[in-house]
Design a protein around this nucleic acid. Structure first.
Length: 283
DNA sequence: GCGGCTA
């Protein structure tokens, strides 16, 4: 009953399909597209059961980050591995690490208002998290494929990319406590193209600073959708930017403040360099 | 030839 009622989609096109075997489980990755856009279907199949989660296209990169986090933190023999939750549109994904006599595993479950919770469980693998790392690698392929195959007219901030709350340490009522109070979720669109010759409605408010080899430009602008802050990273000939609607600026500020705070604690506490990060290690 | 998982 993969509902083909309404706009739900019987005519979904497969853009890229991969399978991954981890121990005796089989994972199917299907990047698909329907009139509503792209999504990634991940199915776990064992001999008797099959369960599936559906990841909106804008969530693939978050899945990638999270799998990197779990691969890195466990290869570093770090025992402080946290549960994470990821909100995308109307769905929430929960990431939890567990362990039993069979070994370590990562449980990813999807909860949405309309459907029952569905869960996949990814074994860490026998040696060196080969299961999680392989899973991560396929996510990277899927992410790249979706980036290359997406049509230009699907990249409007309104439909394609929507933020997205990412929280550490599953806390009581993080999702529900916040959603009742706040206005519509902020949108953060990511602009991957290079160069914007048409400076649409630049308000002339710009600032720049430098960090290592990069320069960061902050430009207020506006277009027919309203005002936004464009933050551009320029390194050599490469530049990329994010477009932040002003409706999300306050939360962006709080988010940055949060990370300033926690990194300040880590550094000034001097109780050992125990900084956790989601970034892959730079070698 | 596993088998984990609250909704």
């Amino acid at each position: 009953m993969e509902g083909n009622s309404g706009g739900g989609g019987g005519n979904d096109v497969e853009l890229l399909c991969k399978t991954l075997q981890v121990e005796h489980k089989l994972f199917y990755f299907d990047l698909k597209e329907n009139p509503r856009g792209q999504y990634l279907k991940i199915s776990e199949k064992t001999s008797a059961t099959r369960s599936t989660i559906i990841v909106p296209v804008n969530g693939i990169v978050w899945f990638l980050d999270l799998f990197n986090y779990y691969v890195d933190s466990s290869s570093a023999d770090n025992n402080d591995v946290f549960s994470k939750e990821l909100q995308l549109d109307t769905k929430v994904f929960y990431f939890d690490v567990g362990e039993n006599k069979r070994g370590r595993f990562l449980k990813v479950s999807e909860a949405s208002v309309s459907r029952n919770r569905s869960t996949i469980i990814v074994p860490a693998g026998s040696a060196r998290d080969e299961g999680w790392a392989a899973f991560r690698n396929i996510l990277a392929e899927m992410n790249e494929a979706s980036r290359l195959l997406i049509l230009p007219n699907q990249q409007s901030p309104e439909s394609s990319e929507r933020l997205v709350g990412l929280s550490d340490d599953v806390g009581a009522g993080f999702i529900s406590g916040q959603s009742s109070q706040t206005a519509p979720s902020p949108e953060l669109s990511v602009e991957r193209s290079v160069g914007w010759q048409d400076e649409v409605g630049n308000l002339g408010v710009s600032k720049v600073f430098r960090a290592d080899q990069k320069r960061f430009f902050f430009d207020l602008g506006s277009n027919n959708r309203g005002h936004f802050l464009r933050i551009s990273e320029v390194a050599g000939a490469d530049r990329s930017s994010i477009i932040l609607p002003l409706s999300g600026l306050k939360q962006f500020h709080e988010m940055v403040g949060h990370f300033v705070d926690i990194t300040k604690d880590r550094i000034e506490g001097m109780t050992g360099a125990n900084v956790r990060t989601v970034e892959p290690p730079q070698r």
